[in-house]
Design a protein around this nucleic acid. Sequence first.
DNA 1: CCTACCGATCGGTAGG
DNA 2: CCTACCGATCGGTAGG
Lengths: 195, 195
Amino acid sequence: MTTRHTRRDVVEAAGRLFAQKGYHGTSMRDLGRELGLLGSSLYAHISSKEDLLVEVVDRGAAMFQESAERALSTPGSAVDRLRALVAGHVGVVLGHMDEVRTFLNEARALDGGHRARVLAARDRYEQAFRQVLAEGVEEGSFRADLDPKVSAIFVLSILNALDRWYRPGGPLDADGLVDALMEFVMMGIGSGSKE
Amino acid sequence: MTTRHTRRDVVEAAGRLFAQKGYHGTSMRDLGRELGLLGSSLYAHISSKEDLLVEVVDRGAAMFQESAERALSTPGSAVDRLRALVAGHVGVVLGHMDEVRTFLNEARALDGGHRARVLAARDRYEQAFRQVLAEGVEEGSFRADLDPKVSAIFVLSILNALDRWYRPGGPLDADGLVDALMEFVMMGIGSGSKE
DNA sequence: CCTACCGATCGGTAGG
DNA sequence: CCTACCGATCGGTAGG
């Protein structure tokens, strides 16, 4: 029984294709084919291709935002909150890879106003990391000479690259990934023999 | 005196636009406008749009390849070679940002054969990092329980994100950036007070 | 490097 | 959701 599609189906399929081939690399006819209908039929559900991108990207932004809020309200030390941020990020990436990839890579296809909103959302998210890093410095858990701004960027660089290599079902499960990330971020790779 | 353009000019301008708007987001007419001529006139210098992408991407691949080879032949400890890899990477990114961004982000627009070559080039480059990390473990400079494979990915994640945020002329110069990268990678952010 | 095109494909609409 | 389109733009060519 070939059910009819909902607007949600269309947005989801759009996320899949935008993540895979990019916004400009995806035609409305491609998207129709993905759902088993004609490109022109999509306009019964949505009003423009760019609206579709805005919606996918907004979903990605919202997920990271919620994850950060939850992590920031975690009680305990700054290390605990950093772990919560990292675990939350991993959860978002693994659970919604298409929206995440579109959010991270396709914002440049948006017009000025929408693009500015995405950049603002990314800034707020980065701010959460900066805050926790600064707390950890005061607390004594992180190195006193840390630059929270640069360190936040480095941590986020690792997190934002996850979609490029991590595949569920591989040797590393989600918990192992969080552990590996925290270990790397907290201790680095050095043996400490020269300090 | 409006000089005539060379094939190199066209490839360079293509790199600029592909990096900025993506391969599918750049039309041959866009590229012509960038150089002050018509889209159709470009075909006096090149034979197809995809050839242009292949050439830009190959340049990026070659630069990373050369940088890795130079770094691997650096005498001294594995830490010295890691620093050479990082400094070389920073040099490539700062010196050839357009090719780098196109190499990193636009490979998916290539057809199967060309895309496979790019992935192979990235693998070889990652291999250089893995090798140095493994050497450092044996040498005792890096933690004995290190997974060189995962650690190489983490280090490269930070390096490959540089083009997303680093701007020359900012508070951090190239040498300072290399120092910050090495410090983060070697020691992490933890104070070590709990180990 | 321009003029003058070509067929194909694009996002999108009217009407059912 | 399909039929039947629309004008605009796409990558690319012939000929100069």
